[in-house]
Amino acid sequence: MSVLIVIPARYASTRYPGKPLVPLTGATGEARSLVERSWRAACSVQGADRVVVATDDDRIKRAAEAFGAEVVMTSETCGNGTERCAEAHAALGGEYEVVVNLQGDAPLTPHWFVEDLVAGLRASPGMGLATPVLRCNGGMLNSLLADRQAGRVGGTTAVFAEDRSALYFSKEVVPYCAQAFGDGEVTPVFHHVGVYAYRPDALSAYSGWTAGPLENLEGLEQLRFLENGRKVLCVEVDSRGREFWELNNPEDVPRLEAMMKKMGHE
């Protein structure tokens, strides 16, 4: 199956304008933009046939081409990354069998997350799309709870059925847990990793639907699939001891830089 990885990059982020061009300093002391780090992560994925940055902003286009990325220009009317991926895939001929949306705010996404995701979709022919989930340890769960208590959205959580089809995604921490967990303890909460693998029919159908009330309330694009009766496969991935976090707020920059230095991430 041919695989296209699209990195949607929007300059006009509501919570963090200009986020794709924010510099992040790694273990070597070299600063690279968020979109470049996300592109490098995408290029490390085994089995990907093509990697493109999809944007509607000339500043991002110039920056991406400067570090060697292929850029597909998309319209300003794209409401989210999934719509931008659909437009980019169509612009490239619409012939790829799997389209991966590697959102440009997750530069620490390990290559095996994407590889396992594509394998999970391939093994589930009845599913039109799949997304990774990572079981939280106590440290990650406590970070999510601390962000919510401070009025920040630190990440998204997912709950799913026995067949691994998603029941719901939320920026709140779900399910509710009365129990306190130590940093290294296993918890029943799953962090949703903002990567998606779509079959072309599911991706094209998405663009024809309007955003529903849950998507509008949560600001989570994947809820549009659930609101239209489409199943979303949750593929559990293994961190293999790696730390994972997304850049959602300016406060996340030092957290990500500390993680990169700890892991020796260039």
Score class of each variant (00 low, 15 high):
Ala42Asn: 06
Ala161Val: 03
Leu220Asn: 06
Cys177Ser: 10
Val22Asp: 11
Gly94Gln: 05
Val195Cys: 08
Arg199Gly: 03
Pro175Cys: 00
Phe244Trp: 14
Phe169Gly: 01
Gly128Asn: 09
Lys61His: 04
Ala146Asn: 02
Leu34Gln: 14
Thr28Phe: 12
Ala69Arg: 14
Pro107Arg: 08
Phe67Thr: 04
Glu65Ser: 07
Met73Asn: 08
Pro17Val: 03
Arg84His: 09
Val174Arg: 15
Trp39Ile: 05
Leu214Trp: 15
Val173Tyr: 13
Gln179Gly: 03
Arg15Trp: 14
Pro23His: 02
Thr55Tyr: 09
Thr28Lys: 11
Val186His: 09
Ala31Ser: 15
Arg59Ile: 06
Met73Ala: 07
Arg199Phe: 03
Phe160Trp: 09
Phe169Ser: 07
Thr55Glu: 08
Tyr96Phe: 10
Tyr16Trp: 15
Glu215Val: 05
Ser207Tyr: 12
Pro213Ile: 11
Tyr198Ile: 00
Ser239Gln: 13
Pro254Val: 01
Ala12Trp: 11
Gly120Ala: 06
Gly120Asn: 07
Ala64Tyr: 13
Glu162Asp: 14
Ser165Arg: 14
Glu246Phe: 11
His111Met: 03
Arg62Phe: 10
Arg40Thr: 08
Ser124Gly: 00
Ser170Ile: 08
Gln179Ile: 00
Thr156Ile: 06
Trp39Cys: 00
Val174Phe: 13
Arg135Gln: 15
Glu243Ile: 05
Ala258Asp: 15
Thr156Val: 07
Leu223Trp: 15
Asp238Ser: 11
Val114Cys: 03
Met263Cys: 00
Phe244Asp: 10
Gly154Ser: 07
Val22Phe: 09
Ser33Gln: 12
His89Pro: 11
Gly128Ile: 01
Val100Gln: 05
Tyr196Lys: 10
Cys234Phe: 10
His265Asn: 10
Ser143Val: 04
Gly241Val: 00
Thr25Ala: 02
Thr156Leu: 08
Arg164Asp: 04
Asn249Glu: 12
Asp56Leu: 04
Pro132Tyr: 09
Leu134His: 14
